[in-house]
């Protein structure tokens, strides 16, 4: 793993208030290319608000978002995707009723001629969809297959491949393993590993699962009640630290005592 000195994306003291509620209270983090950055924290810690700020859904109340050394402001998700931030939400933004290819190119179809009535270049799109998914480890036989008939892991791969193909340099994965079975979770982790090996993409992985994080993450940031309560590389942190910080700083040992 190579760590460049310039982070692909960096946040400095991001504050986000909803009325009187402070969702984020000065969050800073740095994500480097070729790295999986695990963002960990309990429910309601502010992880979702943070990734929504990074992907342009929410505008931060104060603080800076710096992409490749340049400060940027996102007024819409479109702005964020234009500078190369691709977010794969839990629902994956896939239409189960249509084919793999139609989903892969949804909203960005290749076509002959200009305007929305342009005829689709179906064969070319089939080829690209198969190729891009193969790059990160899933081979599909039939690009006409409806997405609904694919496994959860394959769908995740489709969504990730799509984000990368359309120029994502920073890939934000929102709990990609949470709704999956054991085997498919492993498939998704393999996919993330493949993306990591591409070397030029920074991955922000939001997860609840300490084991998954430890399997693939290079760097950790722990959030609790809107603040960063700890961070470090996988070398710096021991297993107990991770577990303690994930629970919002409470000692698991204390819990064990209480339960005993």
């Amino acid at each position: 793993m190579v760590t460049n000195l310039i982070p692909l994306i960096e946040t400095q003291d991001i504050v986000k208030k909803f009325g009187s509620f402070i969702a984020l209270n000065g969050v800073s983090l740095k994500v480097y290319p070729g790295e999986v950055h695990a963002l960990l924290g309990d429910n309601g810690a502010g992880k979702s608000t943070l990734i929504k700020a990074l992907s342009g859904v929410h505008q931060p109340t104060s603080g800076k978002i710096i992409v490749e050394g340049k400060e940027t402001k996102f007024n819409s998700p479109r702005d964020a995707s234009e500078v190369g931030i691709g977010t794969v939400y839990q629902d994956l933004a896939l239409n189960s009723l249509t084919s793999v290819t139609r989903n892969f190119f949804l909203g960005r179809e290749l076509k002959f001629g200009k305007g929305p009535f342009g005829i689709l270049k179906m064969n070319k799109m089939h080829g690209i969809a198969i190729e891009e998914m193969a790059k990160i480890g899933i081979k599909i036989e039939d690009p006409e297959q409806p997405v609904g008939t694919m496994s959860g892991g394959q769908r995740q791969t489709l969504a990730i491949a799509r984000a990368i193909y359309f120029g994502a340099k920073v890939l934000i994965l929102d709990e990609p393993t949470s709704a999956l079975g054991q085997k498919q979770q492993m498939e998704v982790l393999k996919t993330i590993k493949k993306v990591q090996q591409l070397g030029n993409i920074a991955i922000i992985l939001i997860t609840h699962n300490e084991i998954h994080a430890r399997l693939i993450a290079d760097r950790y940031t722990f959030i609790s009640l809107g603040e960063v309560i700890g961070s470090g590389t996988s070398k710096d942190l021991a297993g107990d630290d991770i577990r303690r910080l994930m629970a919002g700083g409470a000692e698991v040992g204390d819990l064990a005592k209480e339960l005993a």
Binding site: N95, L97, T98, R102, F105, L106, G107, E109, K111, P116, F117, G118, I119, L120
Partner: peptide, 8 residues
């Protein structure tokens, strides 16, 4: 066409 995909 693209519109078709949008409709679906």
């Amino acid at each position: 066409t693209q519109v078709g995909n949008w409709i679906y």
